[in-house]
Design a protein around this nucleic acid. Structure first.
Length: 355
DNA sequence: AAGTCGGGGCC
DNA sequence: GGCCCAGACTT
């Protein structure tokens, strides 16, 4: 049963707890607008521990917004390789170019202007505004939704945008004017470390132990409520590692859709036979020497599953390397220059040394 | 409001 | 095997 709680009462206990328990994070100790921005984009649907190494490498390679705006696509995707949700970094570069053009290269310190930039929604705009510019606006992410719905024993479906709006409005009323960024980070820190997303909530460690309505009602683990999601669709695919003496064939994926703009080994929808693969190779005007079956593998995306079978095909050195849309590359070069998604990890290792 | 978009860690 | 993660964008 939902209960109206005076949120003003819980602000200071949370800030005090945060002062004692906050983690040292690279973007937290040096909270420049650019670093906060990069971290917030990386942290979308991604855990802190996964982000850390990417963050250091990214801001090291691209220390300013201008560096980001000017980087070529392949190098940009290479910096993001393995982090997922690749449109995040494409949008970030679009935004960087807008910032150069429109804001003279400086991140705008205004919630509404931030919100207009590509890839920055209500959460990220609030996070940047409050953390980097000390503007008292909320930043409601999954942690905040969970923590507050438990605090108030609110059984509303947190996936509904009206619920999120409501929470933003209520938090706006109680934002501490001098510590907005800390307050937002404290809410998230509580969600990440105490009122955790999977697993038992550590209520005995919680600064809101005596306030939490869900704990009083014994329904902590029932919250937050969420509509059950539908199951993923399964796709059979056949992956071909096509190699000559020292090079392997890759291709660039389309600029839109799944894994947009990344590189991949040739692959086909459905389960192809050895003959079908060899026919495809010959149609390309290439001469196969050997073919060998590789292990099956599976990769799970958010809304789809690839069930893959693989072949490695050794061919004669091609006379003409100009195949439309295909590249023959040294596997080591691939490692340095071409971003290949984790979905192909099971087969990447066979791009070298097999025969 | 529902679907698209990654990858990985934890239970 | 299913959960969710410092969500945003498109349809």
């Amino acid at each position: 049963m939902k209960k109206e709680i005076n949120l003003k009462l819980v602000v200071q206990p949370l800030l005090d707890w945060y002062d004692d328990h906050r983690r040292i994070l690279p973007w937290r100790e040096e909270a420049t607008p650019y670093r906060v921005w990069v971290s917030e984009i990386m942290l979308q649907q991604t855990r802190v521990e996964a982000v850390k190494p990417y963050f250091e490498r990214f801001v090291g390679a691209l220390p300013t917004i201008e560096h980001l705006a000017n980087l070529n696509e392949d190098a940009l995707m290479k910096l993001w390789e393995g982090l997922g949700y690749y449109n995040r970094v494409r949008n970030m570069q679009k935004a960087a170019r807008v910032i150069i053009e429109k804001y003279n290269g400086k991140m705008p310190g205004d919630y509404k202007q931030l919100l207009e930039l590509p890839g920055i929604g209500s959460y990220t705009a609030g996070a940047i505004a409050s953390i980097a510019f000390q503007i008292p606006v909320p930043a409601v992410d999954g942690n905040v939704l969970r923590v507050i719905s438990r605090l108030t024993a609110d059984e509303s479906d947190i996936m509904k945008q009206s619920v999120r709006k409501d929470m933003e409005n209520k938090l706006l009323q109680v934002m501490p004017q001098k510590r907005a960024g800390d307050f937002n980070q404290a809410l998230m820190e509580l969600g990440a470390m105490v009122c955790i997303p999977n697993g038992m909530a550590k209520c005995e460690m919680c600064p809101w132990y005596h306030y939490c309505e869900a704990r009083k009602q014994g329904i902590v683990m029932e919250l937050p409520k969420k509509q059950p999601k539908k199951k993923r669709k399964i796709e059979e695919r056949t992956v071909v590692i096509l190699q000559d003496r020292n090079k392997v064939m890759i291709q660039k994926r389309p600029s839109k859709g799944l894994l947009a703009g990344l590189y991949e080994f040739p692959n086909f929808l459905g389960s192809l036979s050895e003959e079908e693969v060899l026919n495809w190779v010959k149609e390309k005007g290439l001469l196969p020497i050997r073919i060998q079956k590789l292990e099956d593998s599976k990769h799970i995306f958010s809304h789809i599953e690839w069930h893959m079978k693989g072949f490695v095909v050794r061919i004669e050195e091609p006379q003409d390397m100009n195949f439309k849309g295909y590249l023959f590359v040294d596997p080591d070069q691939t490692k340095k220059e071409y971003s290949i998604p984790s979905a192909f990890a099971a087969y990447t290792k066979f791009s070298k040394y097999l025969f």
